[in-house]
């Protein structure tokens, strides 16, 4: 089978984890893991896996554009902003795993097939991948969703320098996704780092304002359905406790509502690079891989041998 040729740029936690997942893909072929530090652990692992492991950063991707179909960018919002036009002009589809949010945002369980032709696709954030599906699930069971909020807690050890230096980009991009893709009218995103030892699993909580007359059973059922949907591409994704509807009233930015839905989620990583606690890496890389594979499948000409 013809696999799409992919470069992963950024040899930190996310890029390295994605490399291991892509090595198992039927549709995507990792050609290189590109970094900037020749001594990085990620590049050493790429060499061990038989991949190119250049340390010349975005320049390498541009120079080798003729041999690439896609670039998965796991650098930082800043680096992505500086280079996305070059990827586009070189005809390489960019799957952006930074919160730069240049291209349309994709959450596979919600809008996977809407942007497969876009030159640049943004994967939002790890917290966005974990919580937007639930906001969408609640929204589809309600006439309106005036306000939704997410709180993401990740183990300190799983948050690399990119996340730490760009924490505002994380909250802003995530919050935007809750509105644009989740369907909330107003939103807020919060991220917390927890240094506990042993490290905690990634936790995400969704709070949603429930307007008067909401069908609570339909909301709960929709949440359960969505949990199954996400777990199809992120196997460690689960409801930590059954979702609950709490009574208020609550004075939200979207107005006073009588109830709120609370969805308590946990994401256990597949342990490809960092251990199982780093579900935040896993959900990003699993979602990006799902998007890359969908693009690859959409480009197979009809009637071509699979």
């Amino acid at each position: 089978m013809n696999r799409m040729r992919c470069a992963i740029i950024g040899s930190g936690n996310i890029g390295t984890d994605l490399m291991y997942k892509m090595l198992r893909s039927d549709h995507l072929e990792p050609v290189a893991l590109v970094g900037i530090d020749p001594d990085s652990d990620g590049l050493a692992r790429a060499r061990a896996a038989g991949l190119n492991a250049p340390h010349t950063g975005p320049q390498w991707v541009i120079e080798n554009a003729g041999n690439l179909d896609m670039v998965f960018d796991a650098t930082s919002a800043y680096v992505h902003m500086r280079h996305h036009r070059q990827y586009r002009d070189a005809g390489i589809t960019a799957i952006d795993l930074t919160p730069a949010a240049v291209g349309p945002k994709v959450i596979p369980s919600v809008n996977l097939y809407e942007h497969l032709d876009a030159p640049n696709i943004n994967m939002v954030t790890c917290g966005g991948q974990a919580t937007t599906p639930m906001v969408f699930a609640i929204r589809r069971a309600l006439p309106t969703l005036p306000y939704a909020e997410m709180v993401s807690t990740v183990a300190s050890k799983s948050a690399g320098p990119g996340t730490r230096q760009n924490i505002d980009e994380f909250t802003k991009t995530t919050s935007t996704a809750l509105r644009e893709i989740g369907g909330a009218e107003q939103s807020k995103a919060i991220i917390v780092l927890n240094p506990a030892e042993p490290p905690i699993m990634m936790r995400n909580t969704v709070f949603a304002a429930m307007p008067e007359g909401a069908d609570q059973d339909a909301v709960i059922a929709s949440i359960h359905e969505m949990a199954i949907e996400v777990a199809k591409y992120v196997p460690g994704y689960r409801l930590k406790n059954p979702p609950v509807i709490e009574s208020g009233p609550f004075s939200t930015p979207g107005g006073v509502v009588p109830h709120r839905a609370v969805v308590l989620l946990e994401v256990e990583g597949a342990g490809d690079y960092l251990p199982a606690y780093a579900g935040n890496l896993d959900i990003m890389t699993a979602a990006a891989l799902r998007v890359g594979e969908a693009i690859a499948q959409s480009r197979i000409p009809a009637g071509a041998p699979a």
Binding site: T153, I200, R203, V244, L264
Partner: peptide, 21 residues
């Protein structure tokens, strides 16, 4: 016991639900 830090108020609901169960 969980070494929860400031900001993780959502874990209060999580713990309460588990205790209730």
């Amino acid at each position: 016991r969980r070494q929860v830090v400031g900001g993780q108020e959502d874990m209060i609901i999580d713990v309460a639900l588990e205790l209730a169960r």
